[in-house]
Design a protein around this nucleic acid. Structure first.
Lengths: 118, 118
DNA sequence: AAAATCTGCTTGACATACTTAGCACATGCC
DNA sequence: GGCATGTGCTAAGTATGTCAAGCAGATTTT
């Protein structure tokens, strides 16, 4: 039975931001959300940030809006699409597996497009 | 055919409640949202109510959650399913990517099963 | 008719999302 | 070295979502 230790919203956002190579002030610049607030968000000091903020971050980080909404504890409309096919094929991923798959997919993509950045 | 005028969130909620034949206190009873707040909601005094509240109301009134979210001015999350966090982290997989990931996960698992180091 | 109850509503208080200003530490540049 | 700038963070303030209490008019009950 795969255990699912989910990342918290803050952890997730911090990782996504680092992965994008952006500083808190970079994000402030792009989204008009203050760096102070972003810091609190990433350190779990805010429980229910506005969907509007989450949406901006999801766009900037290139991450699924619905996923962040779910992490924030908000209800998300019915399932229908997503990577449901993958789920059907391999079942639920453990956290370690998920990490590995993320790295793998990123490798795949960076290999396909000749784009180097960090 | 019924004309579909664009309603505000408050108007919409009031109509839905009346259609359901419920008083503000009935709704409070069922949702644990105070009648005071519901009144303000329906009279446009609240601009961005929590998605959690909207979800409760949508269920009770039997209307679409996504629709209310939109009326509230929130971006509507497209549903996701299965390994939703993976989806949040890498976005949607192409068919080729999905095939590759399936192979990769199977490799991971078979390798771990026999405790093998590489 | 009075009393009790139901209805929506307003007010005041509180919690918390969010901002502005500033701090401390680090790194780069003259 | 010293200065500028980039980094995350905290403190204090503002705005607003949310609730508890209570009010006024309508309906019901006795």
């Amino acid at each position: 039975m795969p255990k699912q230790t989910r990342l918290t919203l803050g952890e997730f956002l911090r990782k996504a931001r680092n992965k994008a190579g952006l500083s808190l002030r970079d994000v402030e610049e792009e989204t008009n959300v203050s760096n102070a607030y972003l810091s609190q968000l990433e350190s779990e000091k805010i429980k229910q940030p506005s969907p509007v903020v989450l949406h901006k971050l999801s766009k900037l980080y290139g991450v699924a809006y619905a996923g962040i909404m779910e992490l924030a504890g908000y209800p998300v409309p019915k399932p229908l699409a997503g990577n449901s096919m993958l789920h059907a094929r391999v079942g639920r991923l453990t956290e370690d597996e998920e990490d590995a798959v993320v790295d793998f997919v990123e490798l795949l993509r960076s290999r396909r497009r000749r784009q180097g950045r960090q």
